[in-house]
Design a protein around this nucleic acid. Sequence first.
DNA 1: ATTAATAATGATAATTATTATCAATAGGGA
DNA 2: TCCCTATTGATAATAATTATCATTATTAAT
Lengths: 143, 143
Amino acid sequence: MMQKRDYKAKLDASQYKLTGQRATVLDVMIKNRGQHLSAEEVLQQARLTRPNIGIATVYRTLEKLASLEILYKGMFDSGKYRYELADEREHHHHHVVCMNCGSISEIKDDLLCELEKNIEKQGFRIVDHDLKFFGYCPACSKF
Amino acid sequence: MMQKRDYKAKLDASQYKLTGQRATVLDVMIKNRGQHLSAEEVLQQARLTRPNIGIATVYRTLEKLASLEILYKGMFDSGKYRYELADEREHHHHHVVCMNCGSISEIKDDLLCELEKNIEKQGFRIVDHDLKFFGYCPACSKF
DNA sequence: ATTAATAATGATAATTATTATCAATAGGGA
DNA sequence: TCCCTATTGATAATAATTATCATTATTAAT
Ligand SMILES: [Mn+2]
Ligand SMILES: [Mn+2]
Ligand SMILES: [Zn+2]
Ligand SMILES: [Zn+2]
């Protein structure tokens, strides 16, 4: 699993410097590994340790971290983006969005390679994919 | 392929009545089968034959038609939804979004059944999925 | 046919997430 | 220290969508 210093090294290697605000946002994401947070939720958390950080800085930082692939940015419930810490060691996982409670669960299986190969035979060049399942999580599907 | 009368029958069978405005929106979608239109684009088209239809009615109608599964509602380029005519005879197809020209291409293959089965073994109940590939279309991947 | 109840419409205001603007601040060399 | 550039935070602007509400159309009942 990637450690805090790995993420910081990745930022150092980029054109961006690790300011206090950026470190705060990164810390929030590391503390919430496995969670899928909205910008507003990140702001709340960040203000616990840095009360006057602005929402614009949070958006800017999330965007930068996502462009460095430190974060994954995705749309689950519609209307707003959510961010989660990425671990580049492993291929990006897929999600099950519960249509009852809204929970987001992770799927490790990846059977899309074959499908991607088929598509590339047709002349496309595939660089990424986005797969979400919608249904009911184990807790909700009991009822 | 589903005909206009099939869609109209589906609407009749529902709680909604086929008003003039709704017929106009449906006609636009049928005329643009295979296209992925935004609400604003539907409005433009609709106003060609019904100049004073309002944007609120377009949104309301698209929402209704999607809930009846006459349309499929999806987010491709971020920020706005796009709608396309569904053909319930066939399982919903997947998409390749070109990262250069933005074109949306269709994929008929579906290799997700096995993956869905795996997930259901873990206690989930899957009712839908959403898969998008991002990359370059044949035209754009030549360069 | 007239009336009353209900549903649908269009204009427009409100909302929400996100982005742009801009003046103030911070930090890193010469 | 002084200059230069990047960053920040407050706030305005934007864009898509939804809510509100008065008006109109449709249906059902009398
Ligand atoms: Mn995840
Ligand atoms: Mn399509
Ligand atoms: Zn659930
Ligand atoms: Zn292209």
